[in-house]
Amino acid sequence: MVNLEDLKKEAKTVLEEGKVKYIIGYEKSANGLMPVPGFIKSPEEVEKLIWTPACVYNLTKFLVDEKRRKSREKKPDERPVGLVVKGCDSRALVVLLQEKFINRDDVFIIGVSCEETGVIDEKKLIKKLKGKKAEKIEFDEKDNFIVTTQEGKVKIAASEVLAERCLECKANSPVIYDVLLGEKAKRSVDNPFQSLEKIESLPERERWKFWKEQLSKCIRCYACRSVCPMCYCDECVADTINFAVTADTTAEEKAQKIKWLEKSPVKSENFVYHLVRAIHLAGRCIDCGECERVCPLDIPIRFLNKKLEKDAKELFDYEAGFDPEQPSLVSSFKDEDPEDFIR
């Protein structure tokens, strides 16, 4: 169990030493259980930091904002940003390093191990508590969480409220860090693609029915895109834009933007959007599950990502987010890559 005091101590030290300009971590929010991302700028503020099973967010997304902010500053503070990462988040960071979007020197990584547990799925917890409002959640031992409600403490089996992705986690301890809190223990996962395989094993008609139903719901709010640390393009190809408009852009060039898909939230366009999104994440998605968590329509977006993750592993023995030096999935090949599908 990672001790919060250890986390605070590490944070305080690096801030006092002036090693980092600020730390991005988790902070208690006004409305109970779920924390908010916290930006800790001074040693005094470290008291705000928390570490609970509700620390679900992938904070690497904020590095993307930080990079943009820094590029606009005239005299930027060149010190790194401190970042609290879980195992999955650290893999996202590895991909950002691999894609040279983030420099290793620009981030001080405070790794927090989930040890033999993980974070919760808020929706599962709400359902489990049947209307009781959770105020606090704590790690117990590896198999349970202790939830405090108005009516007192409840012990809940972790497996019942853990996020789906935690149940299929490949790295519950950070794979890259400057300091590591907690043990490198690994929870044994029999099959990281268990839930996906249920969909895969459906007959073609059923799969189509499933996805038609799910993707037809999409209202194209793009929350999935906004929350994804890998979606750091300045402009998205899904926004019918081919190139950025600058002072030299001619009217003709503007007229030549490619409309790969329509903005209207209809089935066909939703499909194209979600397929493009998934393909662009091939070999990059590390299954932090944020896209699915933020979806207001509860579309099981993770399955699309997981499908590509599984194929990358099965066909090309490729796993994202473990080695910042490895070439990307689609910018590499092996002579013996399978080609039984080719005529």
Binding site: I199, R207, W208, W211, L275, F316, V330, D337
Partner: peptide, 27 residues
């Protein structure tokens, strides 16, 4: 070789969402 890898992924994904596999071919 890059095409082979890329198309394999797209083909499997299209199959997964229930598009008839016969519709997308590579040769």
């Amino acid at each position: 070789f890059y095409a082979r890898r890329r198309i394999a992924l797209v083909k499997r994904l299209l199959d997964f969402i229930g598009l008839e596999p016969q519709r997308f071919q590579m040769s």
